[in-house]
Design a protein around this nucleic acid. Structure first.
Length: 591
RNA sequence: GGGGUCGUAGUUAAGUCGGUUAUAACGCCGGCCUGUCACGCCGGAGGCCGUGGGUUCGAGUCCCAUCGACCCCGCCA
């Protein structure tokens, strides 16, 4: 090994070299991305986090380095001293950022060898997720993944920059905290010192940030890790990160204004994209009736149209019975109906099936009238009424779903997104932010046979709805708001309850007994009595935000060490069994 | 908890109606090669067909169970 290079400092990142560096001596450290051994000349693409540069080993320029370079294999770690050389015009590689130049190696150190990697790191070969997750540290060498993780770091940094500048104070809250089984399932941590007692990992720092308002910090934030023991999805991990914020003496408008400025700052600084607040706002009711869900993708129109009155009066039995039973009949209109074949239309039932809908009925509109099995049930007058309301012109296809309102909305909401993707209605470069407001405070849970909060029990009801807390909880609106981006809920928050009597009424409406409340939230109700300022806040799912910013399809692509759909880590094999001694120490027994 | 897709050399895939020695590409190993950049050419090694059971004269292929990955519904205040 050459003593010379190892005592030197690295002078440049591989990926940073450009034409302006030509003629300079450089010292590079990096991984062998690819090796092309021509027998005489040897080319090595040397990679570091900034990119890749071609290194040339020429027997006439550096005989010893050239000799050693024969033994190089993929993913070896090298140190190279050499000179930056302008490539001749016909040898410029336009697909590389560094493609105008190369480094002629004078000296080579092999800093470490590498076993043959279990998969090719070219980023093009599809490799099974099992393997990628088992060797996550190798997968993380790939450019796309590195770019996502680096973007994530920048977004977190710019968030902090903005919030610090805006007068927010970052406070850390406990990870070992109290179980509050009102929301998601908790991850529990057994206490050694108090046998039989458990901490819970926080689902969010909700109560702590409200306590910080009571303490007078006025503007709080934290980039906080949260834990929820629920089943995973492509956009859901058991531990995830929130940009968590809380402010005193503010209204909905103040929060919306700060967040719009924060998002504008982050997207400008991290993506160079200019946002134009104010963002559009929809009430929850509007979102559901027009888009079928409270996280509408507003990058494309294709809105849901209510046809219950017209279609319910048609001869079609399914429709008339649905209307008579208090259900809903709603539709989507595809302007270019020809883009879906009859077979395509018939297959749409599979899209709505999982949401409980029995199928999608359709009709094609043409100059001559309607075609499709639905046509014969609609007379001339009803066709006219439907066409007018759906704005369906000749060539269009109208897609109907009839069921309870909830099922219709869920089905058409999903169908709308499916068609938006499938028919290419979505501008992939667009950033469609939408605020959703006026959420209902409670939803009735058939499973639990009681009302559950739509957001969480600390959300303030709209003042004039407070009397309904005891009489008609379903009518109470919450002072809550979500921020939706491109059809994903990226954040949600509310103005909180700051009066202990209102807080008690909400717990009551949730069917929680006095003793239960005291046990779970007693410390918080106590705190509310000592001069709680009016306050509110919001929390953003950082992972989902990064996902959208990076154009990633899975949340795993923006988390360095993610878990599988069964919440395991294939690399470290967590979770795993522990020794009998450890269990005994915790007074635990496995049954 | 429910539904779906998938599992074959190191990797990605093919494998017909159940029938001879399970193919290919990439990777790996060896040789040749001084302007390659997915280098090229020649040669070679490499398989518990996820696992267990069953049907059959015979199973990668059919059946059952099981494990694992991914996606969706439920769930996620």
């Amino acid at each position: 090994m050459s003593e010379f290079i190892t005592k030197q400092k690295r002078s440049h990142y591989c990926g940073s070299l450009r034409a302006q560096d030509v003629g300079n001596e450089v010292i590079l450290m990096g991984w062998v991305h690819r090796r092309r051994d021509l027998g005489g000349l040897i080319f090595v693409d040397l990679r570091d986090r900034e990119g890749t540069i071609q290194v040339v080993f020429d027997p006439e320029q550096g005989p010893q380095a050239h000799e050693l370079a024969h033994t190089i294999r993929n993913e070896f770690v090298l140190a190279i001293r050499g000179r930056v050389n302008q490539r001749p015009a016909d040898m410029i590689n336009t697909s590389m950022a560094t493609g105008e130049v190369e480094v002629i190696a004078d000296e080579l150190d092999i800093l470490n060898e590498s076993s043959t990697p279990p998969f090719v790191l070219d980023g093009e070969t599809e490799v099974s997720d099992n393997l990628l997750l088992k060797y996550r540290y190798l997968d993380l060498r790939r450019r796309d993944l590195q770019r996502n993780i680096i973007l994530r770091s920048r977004v977190a940094a710019e968030t902090r920059n903005f919030l610090q500048e805006t007068g927010f104070i970052e406070v850390e809250t406990p990870s070992l905290t109290k179980s509050t089984p009102e929301g998601a399932r908790d991850y529990l941590v057994p206490s050694r010192v108090t046998p039989g007692s458990f901490y819970a990992l926080p689902q969010s720092p909700q109560l702590f940030k409200q306590l910080l308002m009571i303490s007078g910090f006025d503007k709080y934030y934290q980039i906080a890790r949260c834990f929820r023991d629920e089943d995973l999805r492509a956009d859901r991990q058991p531990e995830f990160t929130q940009i968590d914020m809380e402010m005193s003496f503010i209204s909905e408008d103040d929060i919306i204004d700060i967040i719009e400025r924060m998002m504008t700052h982050i997207f400008e600084a991290c993506l160079g994209k200019t946002l134009t607040p104010p963002f559009p706002q929809l009430t929850y009711g509007e979102a559901i009736s027009r888009y079928g869900r409270d996280n509408p993708d507003t990058r494309f129109a294709l809105e849901i149209i209510d046809l219950t009155d017209i279609a319910g009066a048609s001869e079609f039995r399914v429709f008339s019975e649905t209307a008579r039973n208090g259900g809903a009949i709603k539709a989507l209109t595809i302007e270019d109906g020809a883009s879906l074949s009859r077979k395509d239309l018939d297959a749409l039932g599979e899209i709505v099936g999982p949401y409980g809908a029995k199928g999608v009925a359709w009709a094609r509109v043409s100059e001559e009238g309607w075609t499709g099995s639905l046509a014969k049930f609609f007379d001339q007058e009803k066709r006219g009424l439907v066409e007018k309301r759906t704005d369906a012109r000749p060539g269009a296809a109208i897609l109907f779903v009839a069921d309870t309102a909830d099922v219709v909305h869920a089905a058409l909401g999903a169908l709308r997104v499916h068609l938006g993707n499938r028919l290419g209605l979505i501008d992939q470069g667009a950033l469609a932010f939408t605020w959703i407001t006026e959420f209902p405070m409670f939803e009735y849970s058939e499973a639990e046979k009681r009302y559950m909060t739509t957001h969480h029990p600390f959300t303030s009801p709209v003042a004039q709805d407070i009397p309904f807390l005891t009489t008609d909880p379903g009518r109470v609106r919450a002072r809550a708001y979500d921020l939706v981006l491109n059809g994903s809920e990226i954040g949600g928050g509310s103005i909180r309850i700051h009066q202990s009597d209102v807080q008690s009424m909400v717990f009551e409406a949730l069917g929680l007994g006095e003793d239960e409340v005291k046990m779970k939230f007693g410390f918080f109700l106590d705190a509310l009595r000592y001069g709680t300022p009016p306050h509110g806040g919001i929390a953003f799912g950082l992972d989902r935000m990064i996902m959208i910013m990076a154009g990633a399809e899975s949340i795993r692509d923006v988390i360095a060490f993610p878990k599988t759909a069964k919440a395991t880590c294939l690399m470290s094999n967590a979770p795993s069994e522990v020794s009998a001694d450890q269990l005994a120490e915790l007074s635990l027994k496995i049954i």
